[in-house]
Design a protein around this nucleic acid. Structure first.
Length: 407
RNA sequence: GGGUAGGUGCCCGAGUGGUUAAAGGGAACGGACUGUAAAUCCGUCGCCGUAGGCUACGAUGGUUCGAAUCCAUCCCUGCCCA
């Protein structure tokens, strides 16, 4: 083995905190380590934040270690208060089960689960069976409330109110580590940096009860250079589910990241060699657009596959490069009847706009074009002449394109 | 359970009887500038619409010509006390 995975992770900028850097490095160099990352089923799709964790897992798996993907069928019922300023919405059991299944499907694209090379487990399998008194006696005795209250992750909530329900989240997550250690001799828990408190909880609990050496490591959160969370779009998160965020939109998101974030994103979200990452990140001015294209393509390829990435790229080039093909643009299908209605009504019906007011406003602000011509009349009505081969192109703002297609 | 401070638009936050669709900021969106970037500047930012109307300030009911603003009950949250 030439270079240690640990150093790879470090070089690419993944690592935020580690319980003991030297020991973890040594462990990863000398043995096959079983490790885990937990994913709580708070929505019906994974998003880019999760993707970062999957990248880390993938790096480690390629280095011969065994990932355990833990879906939080149990912890999801409680809600992690870490770093949050308000309580999470309570999910029904059905939601949780559904979401867990969605997660599983998506994760299978990034992690190789064949031949036991990785495991998928659900902490609901053990957490839901726990008996309160037994748990208190076995686990509760090892936590001091004083310490828990001092944890960084509760800071926000100490002002706004933290329920006992959520306060217990740390205990549940810690127990997960213990349980996984017992079942699979798992030795390392990883998570986003906001999980640090929860992770050391598990490390300490497992050490105390079993006496075994176990470790924790957090990876950096995906933030922009100005500190804001990355992966936020108008519609909310940047989802990995193509029904929730289309491959085209996904591609465009990365195509448009800030100059300052390109290198970081390439390092964290693609497998390009670091020399290449650094080279691309060093490009300046106009040229850095090349780096962004590569970033967008590579990330989209990882998440949606090569075919979708090619389509997204082609669509983007068609739209911004001026070369014809509109095939891969988001398409609005129109009946003959629709094709003679007011443009505004058609676009609202297609959910291109949230309301007519919004659409009118955009027209008044000169932000809407039909086939490259500004639409100036809010009451503009579609007619035969707008369509070429049954197709018309609508441009919303500067970079959102839609294809109207008569069917 | 008692006391007390609160619950306002996507978020933060002003407003305490009409002039308030509701100050200000942030986010978002459009335009200019550019490199499909950032920063900056200008504009927009509840819904339908020509006017005008409708719906909104935790919930419900009430007082009033008129309420986010007053009263009652209820729900929720912080803090202090038990």
């Amino acid at each position: 083995m030439s270079i240690s995975v640990f150093d790879v992770l470090k070089e690419r900028g993944y690592i935020a905190q580690c319980t003991n850097e030297d020991e973890v490095r040594a462990m990863l160099e000398n043995e096959k380590v079983t490790f885990y990352i937990g994913f709580d089923p708070t929505a019906d799709s994974l998003h880019v934040g999760h993707f970062l964790g999957l990248m880390v897992m993938s790096h480690l798996q390629k280095a011969g270690h065994r990932p355990v993907c833990l879906v939080g069928g149990g912890t999801g019922t409680v809600g992690d208060p870490s770093g949050r300023s308000d309580m999470r919405k309570m999910l029904t059991d059905e939601d949780i089960e559904y979401n867990c299944n969605q997660f599983k499907k998506q994760m299978a694209r990034f992690i190789d689960f064949s031949d036991g090379k990785a495991l998928m487990v659900n902490n609901g399998d053990w957490l839901r069976k726990l008996n309160y008194i037994d748990l208190l006696r076995e686990v509760g005795a090892h936590f001091t409330v004083n310490r828990m209250l001092a944890a960084e992750c509760y800071k926000n909530r100490m002002e706004k109110g933290l329920t006992f329900l959520e306060f217990n989240y740390m205990i549940m997550q810690s127990y997960d580590f213990l349980e996984l250690h017992r079942r699979y001799n798992l030795k390392l828990e990883m998570g986003g940096d906001d999980q640090w408190s929860n992770i050391i909880g598990g490390v300490e609990l497992t050490r105390r009860i079993t006496g075994d050496a176990v470790y924790g490591l957090t990876f950096t959160l995906l933030t922009k250079s100005d500190g804001q969370k990355m992966g936020k779009t108008a519609g909310g998160a940047l989802w990995l589910d193509k029904e929730k965020t289309s491959p085209y939109d996904f591609y465009q998101y990365w195509r448009n990241v800030d100059d300052a974030d390109v290198e970081r994103c390439l390092a964290l979200l693609t497998f390009l060699p670091m020399e290449e990452v650094r080279r691309l990140g060093a490009l300046e001015g106009q040229e850095i657009n090349e780096a962004k294209k590569i970033l967008a393509y590579e990330v989209t390829k990882l998440v949606h596959g090569q075919e979708e990435a090619d389509k997204a790229k082609a669509a983007a080039e068609a739209v911004f490069g001026g070369s014809g093909s509109s095939e891969n643009m988001p398409t609005v299908e129109l009946t003959a009847e629709d094709a003679a209605k007011k443009l505004v009504d058609v676009l609202v019906a297609a959910e291109v706009f949230g309301s007519k007011g919004e659409a009118r406003r955009l027209i008044q602000q000169n932000g809407l074009s039909l086939n490259d011509e500004k639409v100036t009349d809010p009451d503009y009505t579609l007619s035969e002449g707008n369509f070429t081969d049954g197709e018309a192109i609508v441009k919303k703002g500067k970079k959102k394109f839609y294809r109207l297609l008569k069917v």
